[in-house]
Design a protein around this nucleic acid. Structure first.
Length: 853
RNA sequence: GGGCGCGUAGCUCAGUGGAAGAGCACCCGCCUUACAAGCGGGGGGUCGUUGGUUCGAACCCAACCGUGCCCA
């Protein structure tokens, strides 16, 4: 027998272990069933799962579990990425605690240490995934640094290199002076920071020109001043030279169309080695690039400032200029966008350096085309614009990182300046003087291969044949650009134009109950493990799924997860009621001699199955949850079970068993644990994980039964309303006579109406003190023994009257308008006519009751 | 500065041309033998503002105000 309350802690771990032990999540590449595959966006091996992961995983698990039940060969492939910078940072911090640096250990020993950390940290995430109930295929778990995936990295690098799509060049890149590595554009986060805007006069007298800058210290590396070619103010100066203050160097004044004449004075200083725009100006005009900082952001030139950090150098340079009378204006604070390292927050320094790049133009065009021509669908479609915005304006991708943890760039340099890219099955060149590139690849370079490297590529494995392209990729819209675009580029390139996935389903970010971003500093972070401990995995999942409107952020709160927990408990108790009342799934579902109430609930069930299927296909998980929540709670619990109390028949027991069976199946993808526990108890079958998904049966749709029960509900509700307004206690029975049941087609349900509305049959001395007329044509005469509260009744009827009057007036206004009756479609006009008739009938009825009071 | 969203009940959100909805919160009454993690009833919104299109606008168009995100 089931306990009175659902206790998730007693169910979850046991069930999960059994599922895994039984191999229920293991996919079979040799199966004849159609494939449905999802690759899990790999979490960072260094991190832990936060509530955003829980959302992402819940959505994927719901999709994969349903497909598995639908008879697909369903594969959900898990794994992690190696998170180059983050992981190296963690291990370096550990070393620093004992006063060591990675250089003390040497490259090999350091990498060995990182592997140890990976074993420790990675296990944590895997444990968290089991707590969520993720139905992933653990036998196929992968890691971006494992042997197979590393081979994939080498293979694609070599292929891109040979195709001329990977090149090495000296460019301005984003440099983190703390992590001491290059970063790609997407590893830089911009924020509006307070700074200063300083206007500096270069040159003197008639030839003086004023430039404004937020980075005064970079003037030490200026090699030109630029103005717009059409700017009349400066035309006479173009081609001349001006003396650069503090340095004594003379620099040219050049004309460049990219200068905005409206900004500041219209003249800009040009520092090609420390600003990407200036670098381009420098290229166009053949200007030298003068690097004035080292890798730590420390000034390396010009005596007085030598050795100063860039942020110390700034005020020092301004002070020196002020001493020379060259500061024309200063604005402080001056808010402007500043780039920060995504990993450590340090202000990024644009730095001229020699790096490896992927030439993205042809790859990005193909990635855009795959969506443009419909081979890949983005859900929700509104977000395709953002996708195009990214792939159509992509810069070349800097892929080299000055780290030790990652895939080392497979390029060797020879003594004569040779550059050789070594493929996965090739031997590096032997002999003296050959060295391998010191750098490793961006983590995203290997993550971009995830949808096919995890399936065995570059080998032509059965997995790859069966499961590529994967069916749907689920991730947050915040990494649409970070990752999705790159998987598209590499997938299309490596797999001969075959897309890595058919659908990209984007969800939002989890926020708190006021729509605020979760952050440690704000103290509103939810730990999914904490919720699972306190409310259960199913409640946590349901809370997230119920908020998962496509593309929209998902607000959650403790109140809501309580509500979800309550819902799980409701299911528990509904099944408990069923079991103690003989609900069964044995034998065929009787269809011949069913009562109206049974036909009604079966009919409702068919609508719900159809709706849920539609909603799942549209990735509308929030709506799936809403539909099932209301069906379970309103239709099944509040009405069907209540109508069944004291009215159990063998047919009813079979129908009730069927309804519970189907409901639990429909909910299983969202709330796997409680449904598994209940369903196996109800049916005696071993597991719901691979039970078949319900299919709607049109033959069971019964409009007449639905109408009849709706009328029954209306009578009961009207009486309950009267009772509540009259202050009649719920337990108190009221003597009443029901009239008009025959005409309303409800005579068979008098007993049900009496029990749900708590009405007793009239005796000989019955004297009606109140008369209630329900819209469906039923009149209820009640004997309240003279305790009728006339004022309360008048108020109640008054409200009804006002509502009916308003309705009638609205309809009449429409029908009196010839423009409406002429132009509106006939069904609409007819509907309004019917509404008017109904409103007028209500009005007459209510007015009659008021008069009778 | 450029681009993309969003503004509907106290809170969080559905609804995208023909009757203003849900969950939670709130108010009233109840331990009615599945469930107090519950049951019954109820109040609450000129759908951001102003114009326009339409017989008809929360929904389409324009402008404005507020707000969020991405990019520079």
């Amino acid at each position: 027998m089931l306990s009175a309350q659902y206790a998730p802690g007693e169910v979850e771990q046991r069930r999960y272990e059994q599922w895994v032990a039984d191999g229920l999540f293991t996919a079979d590449a040799a199966s004849d069933k159609p494939a449905f595959a999802i690759v899990l966006p790999p979490p960072n091996v260094t991190g832990s799962l936060h509530i955003g992961h829980a959302l992402d995983h819940t959505v994927q698990d719901a999709l994969i579990r349903r497909k598995r039940m639908q008879g697909f060969e369903a594969l959900w492939l898990p794994g992690m990425d190696h998170a180059g910078i983050a992981t190296q940072n963690v291990v370096e911090r550990q070393l620093a605690a004992s006063g060591q640096s990675r250089h003390d250990l040497g490259r090999e020993a350091f990498v060995e240490k990182v592997w140890q950390w990976k074993a420790e940290s990675g296990g944590k995430i895997l444990g968290q995934m089991t707590r969520l109930g993720d139905s992933v295929d653990w036998s196929r778990e992968r890691f971006t640094m494992d042997e197979g995936l590393s081979r994939a990295v080498l293979t694609i690098f070599k292929r891109l290199f040979d195709d001329g799509l990977i090149y090495r060049a000296e460019r301005i890149i984003n440099w983190c002076p703390r992590c001491l590595t290059a970063l790609s554009d997407i590893e830089v986060e911009h924020s509006d920071d307070d700074g200063e805007l300083v206007s500096i006069r270069y040159g003197d007298g008639a030839d003086a020109i004023v430039v404004a800058t937020t980075r005064a210290e970079t003037m030490l590396g200026d090699t030109a001043v630029a103005v717009h070619p059409d700017d009349e103010r400066y035309k006479h100066l173009v081609g001349t030279e001006v003396e650069l203050p503090l340095t004594g160097r003379r620099i040219p004044i050049v004309a460049d169309a990219h200068v905005d004449p409206a900004f500041g004075t219209g003249a800009v200083k040009v520092t090609p080695a420390h600003d990407p725009n200036d670098f381009e100006i420098g290229q166009r005009h053949g200007l030298p690039s003068l690097t004035i900082m080292d890798e730590h952001g420390v000034i390396t030139v010009h005596g007085p400032f030598l050795g100063l950090d860039r942020f110390e150098a700034r005020p020092a340079v301004v002070a020196a200029l002020r001493a020379e009378g060259r500061i024309v204006a200063e604005k402080r604070p001056y808010t402007h966008a500043v780039g920060h390292c995504q990993r450590c927050g340090t202000t990024v320094e644009p730095r001229l350096s020699l790096q490896w790049f992927v030439k993205t133009e042809p790859l990005a065009r193909a990635a855009g085309d795959a969506v443009r021509d419909g081979r890949v669908r983005v859900e929700p479609p509104e977000l395709t614009k953002r996708y195009f915005g990214w792939v159509d304006n992509m810069h070349d991708w800097c892929i080299s990182r000055q780290l030790w943890w990652g895939h080392r760039i497979p390029v060797w340099y020879g003594p004569q300046g040779e550059v050789v890219c070594v493929g996965p099955d090739e031997q590096p060149p032997a002999g003296d003087g050959w060295t391998q590139d010191q750098d490793v690849l961006d983590t995203w370079f290997s993550s971009a291969l995830w949808p096919f490297s995890t399936l065995g590529w570059p080998d032509e494995t059965p997995d790859l044949a069966k499961f590529y392209p994967t069916s749907v990729l689920v991730t947050g819209y915040d990494i649409l650009f970070f990752w999705v675009a790159r998987m598209m580029m590499f997938g299309l390139y490596a797999m001969d134009g075959r897309q890595p996935f058919d659908v990209v389903m984007l969800h939002g970010m989890v926020r708190d109950q006021h729509g605020k971003k979760m952050s440690k500093s704000f103290g509103n972070v939810v730990d999914p493990l904490d919720w699972i401990d306190r409310f259960g995995a199913d409640a946590t999942r349901f809370t997230l799924a119920r908020g998962a409107n496509p593309g929209a952020d998902v607000p959650v709160s403790e109140e809501w997860v309580q509500g979800a927990r309550n819902f799980c408990n409701k299911l528990w108790n509904a099944t408990r009621f069923g079991l103690s009342n003989g609900a069964t799934v044995e034998g065929d579902l009787p269809t011949g001699d069913l009562s109206t109430v049974d036909r009604w609930i079966l009919s409702r069930l068919q609508h719900v199955i159809a709706e849920v299927d539609e909603q799942f296909e549209a990735y509308e998980l929030a709506k799936v949850c809403d539909t099932l929540y209301h069906f379970a709670w309103d239709d099944v619990c509040d009405w069907y079970l209540e109508l069944s109390k004291g009215a159990m028949t063998p047919q009813r027991q079979r129908v009730l068993g069927h309804v519970l069976d189907q409901l639990l199946r429909l909910l299983h993808p969202i709330t796997p644990f409680v449904t598994e526990e209940l369903w196996t108890t109800l049916t005696g079958a071993p597991t719901l994980v691979r039970a078949s998904w319900p299919a709607a049966d049109q033959a069971l749709v019964d409009d007449a039964a639905e109408r009849e029960v709706a009328d029954l509900q209306r009578v009961v509700t009207e009486v309950r309303r009267f009772r509540a307004d009259q202050g009649v206690k719920p337990a108190q029975k009221v003597v009443a006579r029901l009239e008009g049941l025959d005409a309303a087609g409800l005579s068979a349900h008098e007993g049900l109406i009496r029990s749900l509305a708590r009405l007793e049959a009239p005796g000989a001395e019955f004297a009606a003190t109140a008369k209630l007329s329900v819209g469906v044509g039923v009149t209820v005469e009640l004997d309240t023994r003279g305790t009728i509260d006339v004022a309360a009744e008048r108020a109640r009827l008054g409200k009804d009257q006002a509502a009916a009057e308003k309705e009638a007036a609205q309809c009449r206004a429409k029908l009196d308008n010839p423009a409406f009756t002429d132009k509106a479609p006939e069904p609409v006009v007819e509907k309004i006519r019917q509404r008017l008739a109904a409103a007028e009938a209500d009005l007459a009825r209510i007015t009659g009751q008021l008069d009778a009071l």
